[in-house]
Amino acid sequence: MIRVQEQDFDIGKELAALTGGNTAIGGLAVFVGLVRDIAGGSDIQAMTLEHYPAMTEKMLAEIEAEARERWPLEASLIIHRYGRLEPGDQIVLVAAASAHRDAAFEACQFLMDWLKTKAPFWKLEETDAGAQWVDARSSDDAAAARWVKQDPDAAE
């Protein structure tokens, strides 16, 4: 399931709803992203997340579908917020549930890594020096690239 919303989410309620009634689930891996109070040495007062609504939903659905194809998941969830957020606020919730922990851990990390590089969100940080758009990080590209499937016939 995917959701893009302005309002906050309750992690406990979301996870209970996600796994409730499914006793085939043996492991649930969860990642929660929060607004940090410092970036590049500047204090962050707030952050505004802009997105491209029609494309965001489509990309998140594609990313989730890809995870469910790669791992035997019993349940999965991506919630991403947009709008103005303050330090300590929750930005994103990603959860993956499976019979065993390996699939849950890996799928959760995959969902986050691909979301960071493929979902059309942009962060505008408010600092003492003014508002600044956050630059993409090459470390995020590297994290996403490790999940790109290699052609087994390709020469090394």
């Binding site: 997340l49 494309m55 590089t117 493929k118 969100f121 942009w122 962060k123 956050v134 630059d135 993409a136």
Partner: peptide, 23 residues
């Protein structure tokens, strides 16, 4: 997502943006 060589037509919605920074 589209590449420079991808075709575009009069009925398309084309979006321009920097690399994404969500999550």
């Amino acid at each position: 997502f589209a590449k420079n060589s991808d075709p575009i037509g009069p009925n398309d919605e084309v979006a321009l943006f920097p690399p994404v920074t969500g999550g």
